[in-house]
Design a protein around this nucleic acid. Structure first.
Lengths: 227, 227
DNA sequence: TAGAAATTTGAACCAATGTTCAAATTTCGA
DNA sequence: TCGAAATTTGAACATTGGTTCAAATTTCTA
């Protein structure tokens, strides 16, 4: 890699990092090209030397974040552990991505502003991740590590809890990223209910637990185009 | 209530409903006054007869949604059930709010665009809800209904899973609101881990479960100003 | 039904901002 | 060090969209 190409790559990375931070704070439409540029001591005109337009930055930011989580996915898949360990590994990686650095939080960003062509590429990548996640939940249930859950619903709950981190976590907080990540993983994986036999006796009347859930029949799937 | 006042109230409600739907799709800054107006067969000028400006609509939308969930909270608190039943009740209500109608999804909207004065009012209401939620989690843990969790982290995980519904649920989906709500409540309340003694034996090595969590020392709290 | 009050309109204004581009500046290889 | 390539600038442009407001229209009351 030539020296200039390296410079260019660093520059692009810096732009994306600045953009993610700004998008997270003000939303895509609420962020101006000037805001993205100024934290890098640039002028907005310079950004157009690297990207054709603002939407391309939004795309790059999403694409990069998805590549990162998909890389974690394929790493996890190479592992020969059982599904539940793989899932734990993957979730820990996802949390880490949300908590350390800025790049990852793009996973929680809106992408409604993308053009149809770019949108479909992003949605395809996202779906690849989500389906893998559901498969792990499903397998884990079959292997007995987890309760048998509706994979789609459980997956959405999981993703919600994790992606929501982008809304409340701030790297300047007193607790380090590792602390928060470890703590949060415990919560998300452990769930809220006690696991002893005593509880089972007291709470069979629990109305909503679905032991072998009928698949959710693709509810609301077409709506996932935006945001 | 006079006839005109009623008309006015309905009009305002319709505006807010249209606004929430648009904000959810395009974000606050990505939504134009014209978009809010057009689904009501109005022109954007008319909106200024009811609201001074766009930001006031954003405020009203948040304020209304928070009032609604806080009303559910005080209803639940009047109940004489144990903490875990109260929590279940509250969560079910929150899910219902997210799933039926548009108004509720404001709970998942960004509020970074609010002026400092309005922002602080919204944040105060939100905190009131979140603290009550944490208290219930804490009490439930002490009473033995739940595992003993770090209330802050567990609360954030819970809110994330629920508020994220706004990103994927669409009322036109094949599964009714009740189906999704019931299913989702089961997932969120039940958590992911099996509860049998067999599991306990196999998984004591589970690395991240924190039985009596040290309080998270206010990690990242100041960051919660935006989004 | 007539006049007053409430509501809506639509055009005009203007600040903000994404984008372009020719010129200036910097970096780099020879 | 020189010249070419890479990069940055800053001003100008065009459009969008929030806001205002006087006039038109509708709704209500006496």
């Amino acid at each position: 890699m030539t020296r200039q190409a390296l410079r260019r790559e660093n520059r692009i990375n810096a732009i994306l990092e600045s953009a993610v931070a700004a998008f997270r704070r003000h939303g895509y439409h609420g962020t101006t090209m000037e805001q993205i540029a100024e934290s890098l001591l640039m002028t907005k005109g310079s950004l157009y030397y690297y990207f054709h337009n603002k939407e391309e930055i939004l795309f790059a930011v999403h694409d990069q974040a998805l590549d990162r989580i998909l890389a974690e996915l394929s790493r996890v898949k190479k592992t020969k552990s059982c599904a539940c360990d793989q899932l734990e590994d993957l979730i820990a990686a996802h949390i880490r991505i949300m908590v350390e650095g800025f790049h990852g939080t793009a996973l929680a960003l809106e992408f409604g502003a993308l053009s149809p062509r770019r949108l479909s590429r992003i949605v395809a990548k996202r779906d690849r991740y989500e389906h893998a996640l559901r498969n792990l939940i499903d397998e884990g249930g079959r292997q007995g590590c987890f309760r048998k859950l509706d994979p789609k619903m459980a997956g959405l709950a999981l993703l919600g809890a994790i992606n929501w981190i982008a809304k409340w976590y701030h790297p300047d907080g007193p607790a380090g990223a590792k602390d928060v990540a470890g703590h949060f993983l415990g919560i998300v994986m452990g769930g809220m209910l006690p696991r002893g036999a005593a509880w089972e006796k007291n709470h069979q009347r629990y109305r909503y637990t679905v032991e072998r859930a009928a698949p959710t029949s693709g509810a609301a799937e077409p709506a996932r185009r935006q945001a």
